[in-house]
Amino acid sequence: MSDVIVFDLYGVIARTQTDEARREIETRAGLAEAGVPAPAFWEAYWDRRPAYDAGQSSADYWAAVAGRLGIAIPDVPALVEADLNSWTDVDDAMVALVGELADRGRTLGLLSNIITDLIPRFEARHGSWLRRFAALTYSCRIGVAKPDPRAYLICAERLGAAPADIVFFDDNAANVAAARAVGMRAEVFTSPEGVRAAVGA
């Protein structure tokens, strides 16, 4: 049984974007007016995301997306707002599990690919349970994002634990493979029940 448990945020504790939120982003980006199909927009959105996760400014990120698509975004602040709002919902069952594990004395860490502007909004809304984590390792603040091995090693160092003493959960198989490569025990997240089984809770 490992006493040090590290979670990814999005797709594990926090929810990913809903269809409604994605449509709002598409509207704010002016896709219909520019004649840009939604799949092309989302390809550019994700292709340019690694630099954003590693600390790039919102203005530079959206300029890069617009440049790839060859469009002018009509209202960048409104688009930024829609994007930030799309990443603030959580899975209540996982939040409850975080509290349960912390109450049992398990050391918890968070390792998230997340953009700078989102952190204060997310922490303001969810600070009560984020305080249960011994270390919050955000990609935008360390300058590297998963699956870069440095992200995992920085997280382990902040927790004062060897990688071999950590069990890590992520919904992305590539991130899980990278965690295993640095020596962590890592599992693809499927459900709170799967976490309980893996950590002996």
Rank of each mutant, 00 (worst) to 15 (best):
V95C: 11
D60C: 08
Q17Y: 10
T16Q: 15
V144H: 10
I73S: 10
V95R: 07
P149K: 08
A178M: 06
D91I: 02
L84Q: 09
P74D: 07
D3C: 00
R131G: 15
C140R: 03
F189D: 00
F168R: 03
A174D: 15
I13Y: 03
N175T: 11
A186R: 03
D60W: 10
F7Q: 03
L108S: 00
A198V: 04
I13K: 01
I13T: 08
A134D: 15
G160P: 01
K146H: 05
Y152N: 01
R131T: 15
G99T: 07
A96L: 07
D3H: 07
G105E: 06
D83M: 09
P147E: 04
T16P: 06
G67Q: 05
V6S: 06
V80Y: 07
S128K: 14
A161Y: 00
Y45T: 10
E26P: 05
A177T: 14
L97A: 03
F189Q: 01
A78C: 02
F122A: 10
A162K: 11
Y138V: 10
L111A: 10
A156R: 03
A156H: 01
R132S: 10
G55F: 07
R132H: 14
E193I: 02
V36I: 15
E81S: 12
L69K: 05
R185M: 04
D148C: 05
G127T: 06
L153A: 09
G67K: 06
A51V: 15
P120W: 14
A186G: 09
D53Q: 02
Y138R: 14
A96S: 13
A173V: 14
W129Y: 13
F41L: 04
E157L: 00
T27K: 13
A63E: 05
F133Y: 07
A124Q: 13
L79G: 09
G35R: 00
R104V: 00
Q17A: 14
I71P: 01
A102S: 12
I5D: 04
L69W: 06
F189E: 02
F41I: 03
A178L: 04
G105A: 02
V12Q: 01
P37K: 11
I73C: 08
W87S: 13
V65D: 10
D53N: 09
V167H: 00
E100I: 05
G194K: 02
P37E: 14
A32Y: 07
G11S: 05
N175M: 09
I114V: 15
I166H: 02
R158Y: 01
A181F: 06
V65L: 11
A102Y: 00
R150K: 15
D19I: 13
V80W: 07
